[in-house]
Design a binder for these strands. Structure first.
Length: 879
RNA sequence: GCGGGGUUAGCUCAGUGGUAGAGCGUUUCCUUUACACGGAAAGGGCCGGGGGUUCGAAUCCCUCACCCCGUACCA
């Protein structure tokens, strides 16, 4: 090797250089060739609202691991990146920035405002790209997309028009979730419920023409101003005689009917009397429809009271109005009582404002015909959800799904392709009509835009060039659709994943992906949600700067079992030590390897020593495991396998074992050459295996190995080979390792230091194994720090005896007092062995066990019993 | 209310029928020329409680308790 590795592992010195090398090499950019075996995946497009957080780091690391693994495994691999315009969220942020400058969007007007949002978008989508780059995301930036791109917008428009023509999109006056702050309708799933401590107000309504009073309870007294009825249960003996009479609405003094309604009223609950406000409550709205009640809208779209609420309330904020209503009721002595009350309140998830149910004309998607095939796709296995437990959540939601409110009273988004004329005609079309096709009057386009998720629902195909029927021959679409895997957070299963499945099936005839992996939420060490207010946020870029992208990626991967991930700095520190270990072990190897990979030639297995056969066998097992785990999205197990192989077997044992040969203390030149060849082999394969998890450090090191391929990113991913399996080598090396551990243990227990050396006696029954220990005794001498290993001789009296993996061993200590701890320990060891002998004997004495248990379990127990007895005998001699 | 998940070493979590595991933390020893972000060793668990199935249960079934998430409703 000409080049050596830097003495210290400093990721900042090479990560960005490596990324540029990959990008220049074009490794992220696959050809649009439908003939090649492909693997494709689309990114869950981050919102162009700001910086990426740790959750983005997780989901994109997991995608990149799969993508790199597939690419190295020979697939024509596409990872398509991009961003989402995120209607409400982005508009909100830009609006807030403007407000800080004292400008309102209404002053600017739609055109100018949108210009500002586009500026924001340009800046942030390039920042997002930079951040993903720093993480090592091997996405094809030449195919980057944005949900408002021309092509994607055409796809959106096509889908809208087609659904409208098919009768699956309709416009209607309905009770919707209204956000008074954002002044737009939102869909049901955008409403989040918050538990809140509130008050339950009991208000007395006089019954007209009697002395009777009806007491209603409400948490929202301000809506009382819009009451148009009072409802009781039709069979309730307390009130049923009152049905048909009128109540007098306090403050307003309006006569409202007392109605009987079995659906709205539960006689068991509260007072059994319900006030009915059809304009501001979903259930009341439906009751109003049943009873033909007038709807009086007392709260306007901005959350202030309307003129209909009366002059004292008009323009008052709805919460101020509540106070005033209470005050007035108290004055007129119509407030019976106020109770403390805990209930959940619907708020807009994006801005935390209390949702106001409002009657409004909106556009809807009739969802049931779309949901049915989407349910079937998961049920049939065409789409597999992993971990599978999410499937029941999916079914539960999809089977109870409601129509989807898709219109938003925003400016930032895809404008609905509907055109209205003054005569009330509406035209929905792909074109830009100037006049109404029905009456010839001039038309104006609908000002509402579509829900962001409408366009993200098309993402897996709109990004590949699909723009509707007759235009689906785009090369990327033909090559890469349907995609293979989707990796995303479980929190957008309904928002996004379900919609993609529904739209994909409807418009492409295929499920947009065959596997969905849902990753957990990244939380802090205590399992708390990360949030700015709690101050427990970990910024992925800070971590990259501190310990490198590889340490962050590996930590995320090894933590990702599908459940939530408690992430703390100490955990990341722990795995950054592993990256450091890889660096240093590679540095050691490179000091001794003197031939480049491309010139190394194949390994002649006949020349291999047991140690080399052992490490290749272990490596092979790890290779099989990693591939298997990655196929099942067990990122944690895959990473764990590599961690333990590389650190626990390669570094702690193999490197220590070949040191005597490499350093010329043992063996001949031929042995040294073979050892170097195998060292190179194991390092090469390990780096390839690790590459998807830690792309930067593996590439930096691998570049020094002189491989045939220009970069490890496109080197073939190792697959297990049967020829490398060697159970015999594994058995013998396990025995050697256990002996070494036993000697080290005994040394420490007897109070000796590592400098004190002893003689070890090893005995076996088979001559071949005796030869093994004669040949490899040097391993025991070096690693257990012995004076010598004596094979097949009777140990003298007074040595410490034991049985390890079926071999009798004896350690000859220089005369030194046996510590009380050691005596105690031996005693405990004997006791433990006796107990296990007793329980094993009991098991074997049980005829049921011998008859019913599988043969290998019974045999195992017998072998174990023999070993235990042999061991007990030796241990007793130590007393 | 309905649905799902959790309860295993001090902490965070793996482990779906055959003798309890990892990382971090703790204790002790060691600066051996890849690495002190290191090496070696130790201690630590009636696998939430109870019951059942089985030759055998952390693992399967029932039940109780506590915690988390989703969803519906809440006058």
């Amino acid at each position: 090797m000409k080049e050596e590795l830097a003495k210290r592992y400093e990721p900042a010195t090479f990560e960005q250089r490596i990324y540029q090398m990959w990008e220049k090499g074009g490794y992220f950019t696959p050809e649009a060739d439908p003939e090649k075996p492909k693997f494709s995946i689309v990114i869950p497009p981050p919102n162009v609202t700001g910086r990426l957080h740790i959750g983005h780091a997780l989901v994109n690391t997991l995608q990149d691991i799969i993508v790199r693994w597939k690419r190295m495994s020979g697939f024509n691999t596409l990872w398509l990146p991009g961003t989402d315009h995120a209607g409400i969220a982005t508009q909100m942020i830009v609006e807030r920035k403007l407000n800080e400058q004292g400008i309102s969007r209404f002053e600017l007007g739609r055109e100018k405002f949108l210009e500002r949002v586009w500026q924001w978008k340009e800046q942030h989508s390039s920042e997002i790209k930079d951040q993903l780059t720093r993480l090592g995301a091997s996405a094809d930036w030449t195919r980057e997309r944005f949900t408002l791109d021309e092509g994607l917008s055409r796809a959106v428009r096509y889908v809208f028009v087609k659904l409208y023509e098919d009768g699956l999109i309709y416009r209607d006056l309905a009770m919707v979730n209204w956000c008074p702050r954002c002044q737009t309708a939102i869909s049901d799933i955008e409403v989040e419920f918050r538990e809140r401590n509130a008050k339950l107000y009991h208000i007395e309504y006089a019954v007209e023409g009697t002395d009777q009073k009806l007491t209603v309870a409400t948490t929202r007294p301000e809506t009382m101003l819009g009451d148009t009825a009072v409802a009781v249960h039709p069979d309730d003996p307390r009130y049923k005689d009152l049905i048909g009479k009128n109540a007098i609405l306090p403050i307003v003094d309006r006569r409202i009917p007392i109605i009987g309604d079995a659906i709205l009223v539960d006689p068991e609950f509260g007072t059994g009397v319900v006030k009915v406000t059809p304009a501001h409550d979903k259930n009341d709205y439906e009751t109003g429809m049943r009873h033909n009640l007038p709807q009086i809208q007392v709260i306007a779209e901005d959350g202030r009271m309307s003129a209909a609420a009366g002059p004292r309330f008009e323009n008052l904020d709805r919460f101020e109005a509540r106070k005033l209503v209470i005050e007035l009721l108290r004055e007129s002595q119509q407030l019976a009582k106020i109770d403390d009350y805990t209930h959940s309140v619907g708020v807009h998830g994006k801005c935390d404002t209390d949702i106001e149910p409002m009657i409004s004309r909106q556009w809807f998607v009739k969802i049931e015909p779309l949901a049915r095939p989407a349910i079937e796709a998961v049920r049939s296995g065409a789409v597999q959800i992993i971990p599978q437990t999410w499937e029941s959540t999916y079914f539960n939601w999809m089977e109870n799904i409601h129509d989807w409110t898709i219109s938003r009273q925003l400016w930032w988004g895809h404008r609905i392709p509907a055109f209205h004329c003054a005569n009330g005609h509406t035209t929905v079309t792909m074109d830009e009509p100037q006049t109404c096709p029905q009456c010839g009057a001039p038309v104006q386009q609908e000002t509402d835009v579509l829900d962001t998720w409408f366009s993200s629902g098309l993402w897996p195909f709109s990004t590949l060039g699909w723009q509707g029927a007759g235009a689906d021959d785009a090369p990327d679409y033909r090559t890469f659709y349907p995609t293979d895997t989707l990796i995303t957070g479980f929190d957008i299963l309904f928002f996004w994943v379900a919609r993609m499945i529904m739209f994909g099936l409807r418009f492409t005839g295929k499920a947009p992906f065959s596997q969905v992996f849902l990753n957990g939420l990244v939380r802090d060490e205590q399992g708390q949600k990360m949030s700015k207010t709690k101050g427990n946020v970990i910024d992925p870029l800070d971590v990259v700067q501190e310990v490198g992208a590889d340490a962050l990626r590996f930590t995320l991967a090894i933590s990702a079992s599908g459940r939530d991930i408690p992430l703390g700095k100490s955990r990341i520190q722990g795995y950054s030590a592993f990256v450091n270990k890889i660096w240093n072990a590679s540095r050691f190897a490179l000091m001794h390897i003197d031939v480049e990979l491309k010139d190394a030639g194949p390994i002649d297995r006949d020349e291999l020593k047991t140690v080399e056969r052992w490490i290749l066998s272990r490596l092979n097992a790890a290779t099989a495991d990693v591939n298997r785990y990655l196929s099942a999205f067990r990122f944690d197990e895959a990473a764990n396998t590599l961690y333990h192989f590389f650190w626990g077997e390669f570094c702690d044992w193999y490197i220590e074992m070949v040191k005597p040969v490499l350093l010329g203390k043992h063996g001949h030149d031929d042995d040294r050459r073979t050892a170097k060849r195998v060292l190179l082999e194991v390092l090469d394969r390990s780096l390839r295996l690790l590459h998807p998890f830690m792309p930067f450090v593996t590439e930096e090191i691998w570049q020094k190995l002189g491989g045939v391929e220009p970069a490890v990113i496109i080197a073939p991913y190792p697959i297990a080979e049967e020829v490398l399996e060697d159970p015999e080598a594994e058995r013998l090396m396990k025995a050697v390792q256990s002996m070494i551990t036993t000697v080290r243990n005994a040394r420490a227990e007897r109070g000796f230091t590592p400098k004190d050396r002893f003689k070890l006696y090893v005995k076996s029954n088979q001559p071949r194994e005796a030869n093994f220990f004669r040949e490899y005794g040097y391993l025991l001498v070096e690693l257990a720090r012995l004076t010598e290993v004596v094979v097949e001789a009777e140990p003298p009296a007074g040595t410490q005896q034991d049985v390890i993996e079926g071999f009798s061993i004896a350690i000859e200590f220089p005369v030194k007092e046996i510590s009380p701890e050691q005596i105690e320990r031996t005693k405990r060891e004997i006791e433990k062995t006796e107990n296990e002998i007793a329980s094993t004997e009991a098991r074997l004495a049980n005829e049921q066990f011998v008859q019913n248990a599988p043969a290998h379990v019974v045999d195992g127990a017998r072998t174990r019993l023999a070993e235990l007895k042999a061991r007990l005998e030796k241990l007793q001699q130590n007393q």
